[in-house]
Amino acid sequence: MDLISWMAWTPQTALFFLFILACLLTMSVWEFFSPGGAPRRGVLGLDTTRGDRLFISLLGSAFIHLAWLGLVGPDLRGAVGVSAVYALLVFLFV
């Protein structure tokens, strides 16, 4: 464990990175079984691939969490909910 002890892992951050890894793996599996990664034009007039939509979802979620933290408070369960809805909308319409 000395090899990674300098990275100061916590269960929470490990879960966070596992979630990101799971997102990437899910995207790969999804693309493998149902190819559809070609760009399409969404409501914002942007040509986005599935990967782009994942990026937009994750980046937007980060800002939703920061805004929630700054404006509402440290209980982030609401921010997780808003982010999930936001990600769903991004994947459906953007």
């Binding site: 002890s5 300098w6 990275m7 100061a8 892992w9 916590t10 929470q12 951050t13």
Partner: peptide, 18 residues
């Protein structure tokens, strides 16, 4: 970057204790 994320949720006074 992962290490920075790990640091950002912890306090340390050195000696690799968080």
């Amino acid at each position: 970057l992962m290490t920075v994320v790990n640091y950002s949720v912890q306090e340390t006074f050195g000696d690799n204790v968080f």
